[in-house]
Amino acid sequence: MENLYLVTRSTFERTAWQLAARLAKRGDTICFAQDAVLAVQGPKELSRKLSEMESAGVTVRFLAEDLAARGLTAPEGKTVNYDGLTSLIEEAKHIIS
């Protein structure tokens, strides 16, 4: 993997996710952790963008522990736990947070 975009801030309150959405390309992964797991709920603009990105070959993941802690769930196959995130970091050339 070339780039792992690690987003940690609420996708409703902050716009930090937008840089990841702009830059991520086929083969990159965007992982939502901490309050950024709120991304499973939106906002709508982000949900739309994520579908587009996935169609374009970007992998989208939500950190399982951070979802569970907040009582949230992600669509099947879209979660990664801390062990999985550790592997994603091993595989990525750059981690951009």
Partner: peptide
Amino acid sequence: DDEKLRRLISSVDHVITFN
């Protein structure tokens, strides 16, 4: 632009962010 930023990122060893 985004494409040039992407290219800059691929040319470096690490990206360090101050957010």
